[in-house]
């Protein structure tokens, strides 16, 4: 499993780990029941603090993506991937809705907004 951390990024390191693991779960690269690296093992491999990896795992657990079994380890939870996708889509729709309303109020054209979207998508 690849996790790539940028130290110069503005995104906190725990967030980078969390996002990448989440992404792997949604894309089914990490399958239900699969074991994640231990908190300490991952911290060592990535040369980061234990607290940082623990924060990432804690949030993934709160959001239901992973499960921790004491003394055994952390596993990808049996969460419906379709459901996750649905949730994400709803969230995105909400955010775009805000953007579109803002565009309309300021008479910014659909084309301009689409342009912006294209650019932002490319940046990733």
């Amino acid at each position: 499993m690849d996790i790539i951390i940028s130290n110069s990024s503005n995104i906190p390191i725990y967030q980078q780990i969390k996002d990448q693991i989440k992404n792997k779960i949604i894309s089914n690269e990490l399958k239900v029941g699969e074991q994640l690296p231990s908190i300490r093992g991952l911290a060592k491999e990535l040369r980061i603090s234990v607290i940082t990896t623990k924060n990432a795992y804690d949030e993934l657990e709160q959001e239901g993506y992973v499960e921790t079994i004491p003394m055994k380890g952390t596993y990808v939870a049996n969460k419906n991937v379709e459901l996750i996708r649905e949730e994400q889509l709803q969230k995105i729709e909400g955010l775009i809705d805000t953007a579109v309303r803002l565009a309309k109020i300021s008479s910014i054209s659909k084309g301009e907004v689409q342009n912006m979207l294209d650019i932002l998508y490319e940046e990733e």
Partner: peptide, 28 residues
């Protein structure tokens, strides 16, 4: 150091004025 703390029972106090080393691995 990181090998040493793989066991959750083990802890480290390390003083240094080379802060970049600690920037990576220190928890506190």
């Amino acid at each position: 150091f990181q090998d040493f703390i793989q066991d959750e029972e083990c802890s480290i106090l390390v003083s240094s004025h080379i802060t970049s080393d600690l920037e990576h691995i220190a928890d506190y």
